[in-house]
């Protein structure tokens, strides 16, 4: 009888607690993750290739154009905004969140049928901003963005005047997989690994709001103490694109890619940066990956990990500026 009374008291206390609380719906837009461009018209955007992309530009639109490509798939360009400084050096700098990522419009998994979709989006972004046919186009990609830049060069070797790459995973699925296995390996007794998977029992979902939020939380692994990527902390982001990321990886596993088939035609010098502190990358992997290009300037950016455009900016900027001025 005493136990029954105790149970009743506990149930009453819990009921009172919850009655006094506002119950929130994790699927409701704008609560756990920011709205996307199709949900918030005040955000800067462009409509190209059947989607709506979060995009902004810096500098004179008649200057040589630098298109900045973020990592992921599923990341966004917030951590690369320091690159807007190149607009002060006579460049027109274009940023956009790739399809299904950052603050760009979301799509269902079925849409992500091929890497070609991202290449076509990039082509559409270039065409959208390009003022005249002889305006130079330079691609500046980080991580997956550097892979996408290379995929574009492989498809359109005659249309790119320069390429700045920082730590692309690989230009073939095999090289990329090798790098991913090193940087994302789950370690049984490690706090970061267990934090990553433990969340799966608390948050599940099939809508973009919940999944993007969860992907953002799991990104804590990227900057946790002792992370292999060598990141000193968290680099800013707006919103992860969980479906885009999952679908892209699924597709890559099912249909391995090779972005190197035409790279021998691209004889312009490419600036290829890798970080000093990323344990999973290093000079050996940088040499392996960059060897697909015939003409490479390989540089190590000291004092930073994988997030070169954010944490390594002070050392990256002068090197990139020298390279950019040489092809201007």
């Amino acid at each position: 009888m005493k136990n029954l009374f105790l149970l009743f008291v506990v149930a009453a206390m819990v009921t009172a607690t919850f009655i006094s609380c506002e119950i929130l719906d994790p699927g409701e837009p704008g609560q756990l993750v920011p709205l996307t461009v199709d949900e918030d018209p005040s955000l800067p955007s462009i409509s190209v290739n059947g989607t709506q992309l979060h995009a902004e530009t810096f500098g004179n639109p008649n200057n040589p154009m630098i298109v900045v490509l973020h990592g992921g798939p599923g990341g966004d360009y917030r951590g690369q905004l320091k690159c807007s400084k190149f607009s002060e050096d006579g460049f027109f700098v274009v940023f956009y969140d790739q399809r299904g990522s950052g603050l760009s419009r979301r799509h269902s998994k079925e849409v992500y049928t091929s890497v070609q979709l991202f290449i076509d989006d990039l082509d559409a972004v270039i065409k959208y901003y390009r003022r005249r046919p002889d305006q130079k186009v330079i691609l500046m990609g980080h991580s997956w963005g550097a892979m996408l830049a290379t995929a574009y060069v492989n498809d359109h070797p005659g249309e790119v005047s320069g390429v700045v790459l920082s730590e692309p995973g690989g230009f073939t699925w095999n090289d990329t997989k090798g790098y991913m296995n090193r940087i994302m390996s789950l370690e049984l007794f490690d706090e970061t690994s267990n934090d990553f998977v433990y969340l799966d029992q608390i948050l599940t979902g099939n809508d973009h709001n919940m999944l993007d939020y969860k992907a953002g939380l799991q990104a804590a692994a990227d900057f946790a103490r002792g992370n292999k990527a060598g990141n000193a902390g968290s680099s800013p982001f707006w919103r992860m694109g969980a479906i885009c990321k999952a679908a892209s990886f699924e597709h890559a596993r099912a249909r391995p890619f090779d972005f190197t088939t035409n790279l021998h035609q691209y004889t312009t010098k490419v600036l290829f940066a890798y970080s000093e502190l990323n344990e999973a990358y290093g000079k050996a992997h940088a040499e392996l990956v960059s060897s697909a290009y015939p003409n490479v300037q390989l540089v190590e950016i000291s004092g930073t990990g994988h997030e070169i455009p954010y944490f390594g900016w002070d050392r990256f900027y002068p090197i990139a500026k020298t390279y950019l001025n040489s092809i201007k």
């Binding site: 929130l24 029992q201 608390i202 599940t204 919940m210 968290s234």
Partner: peptide, 28 residues
């Protein structure tokens, strides 16, 4: 996981000032 109280850190709040802490239902 019927309901969860989510309290986001200052890092998350800095990245998205509009983020809402509170009891979410359902969560998984």
């Amino acid at each position: 996981s019927i309901t969860s109280q989510i309290k986001n850190s200052e890092i998350m709040r800095a990245y998205f000032p509009g983020i809402k802490d509170g009891w979410y239902l359902p969560t998984g």
